[in-house]
Design a binder for these strands. Sequence first.
DNA 1: CACTATTTCTCAATTTTTGAGAAAAATACG
DNA 2: CGTATTTTTCTCAAAAATTGAGAAATAGTG
Lengths: 259, 259
Amino acid sequence: MAGLQRYMAALRLFNEAQPTWTVPDMADALGAPQSTVYRTIRDLLAEGLVEASTDARYRLGPAFIEFDRLTRLTDPLLRAGAHVLEQTVAQAGLPCVGLLSRLYADEVMCIADRASGDARFFPSYERGRPMPLTQGATSKVILARLPARRLAKLLAHAGKAQDAALKSEMATVRRQGFLVSRGEIDAGLAGLAAPIVCEESGLVASLSLVVEAERLDGFSESRLVLMLVSAAAMIEKELQTTSGAPLLPREREKVAREA
Amino acid sequence: MAGLQRYMAALRLFNEAQPTWTVPDMADALGAPQSTVYRTIRDLLAEGLVEASTDARYRLGPAFIEFDRLTRLTDPLLRAGAHVLEQTVAQAGLPCVGLLSRLYADEVMCIADRASGDARFFPSYERGRPMPLTQGATSKVILARLPARRLAKLLAHAGKAQDAALKSEMATVRRQGFLVSRGEIDAGLAGLAAPIVCEESGLVASLSLVVEAERLDGFSESRLVLMLVSAAAMIEKELQTTSGAPLLPREREKVAREA
DNA sequence: CACTATTTCTCAATTTTTGAGAAAAATACG
DNA sequence: CGTATTTTTCTCAAAAATTGAGAAATAGTG
């Protein structure tokens, strides 16, 4: 294996179940000779991607926390939506976890989670955890707002068929502008989600709320959905104004010409 | 430039001031031909380390959020100390920000920050931000507990001289077990820190509290220091027992789900 | 100090990367 | 909808880096 792939293959060995590795074990797992793995580790160490632990073991390094901070500071969705997410959870009036998620490269990923003070459950979703593409309100409202071509490519890439049930659900989302699902991800929990789309920044995302299914009667459901939809709209508006980011090259040219 | 370095040099272009880049701009900044940078970006894309933004721009990708989550879940200090950090901030009784920081490869880095609800200031320190090695109580209590040899190496590597003032402060820390500094990092703020050391896991860290300097009279200072020192001791004890890695129930569930 | 475990180094063969420009693909524009 | 422009991929031989096996060095331990 060559180039970046070799380094990433080594990094992806580190996981929740086995957060530290010795070089011989890595060599086994990667099917590479130890001398090669030592070289790999040396390079990763120099870049802060791994750090030495005790007993000749290595673990993931500080570079990831550093890059994650950058991501937190610069992600347009997070910058536009963190405040609204907090408010939404505060005003929900029942134990809940709010999520901000987005299509990120080829996967749906939660990029912010916020639990109400009285939430006593833990949804599977949390910041940094990739989500199933075709399950749960959170993901489905995102897929529903994707351009048809991109959606097809995405599902093909993930090896998922686009079945009739999914299609009809996505039509529903496009019509009503939100989606509620029960027990699709975690038993006993329900998800309510509204899409967030910003053409200018090429962003397709969702704001969602996870609550205990038994607490979700018809009345609170419609109240929460209303909240979510208007909160999502606020984030969309914020995205447009905030995107006062760098002018596109062409626009800059135009401005210069007119001046 | 070769191997991993080339990829990292490209990644390190992305920063707070310029979070998105075009390939030609990257080529300029890196002094490399565009065709090479296109290849680099293609590889980074495939690994999720960058993602395509709009207008032929690229930004940091989802892989960093994913790896950061792993770090959060598996860092022994975070696992042992997150709860204590929260409690410490809650019981401080004045507006404050609590920090959990540790020596990470060659730098001191904050890995968890927690503000009290009434905190109206923002310390420079936050999760993922590397800290000055020799400034602030947070860093100094860590340096003070480092083996002399390792400290010398660290300071040499960072190009810092080990002056008399620093030496005496470190002696103070070793004697009294904590350190208080005022305005060393942020004007008007004070830092109080206690060291956390765990030989078994090779970890040297600190628990610290940032408060407004004017609110810190002699009485509250000694009260907070007492709190910090005992909280740090609790984390140390937790580190020793936890290091056998008995997963918390919620974590066990997660692992099962992922498998 | 000797013993073991860990890490770095050496070297020629092999594989990859490199850069310049051509070609292709995607996108913008009228 | 075709045309112009921008963005991205591809091609190829030369240059450079990586590879693996084992030797050598270093660190760690009783």
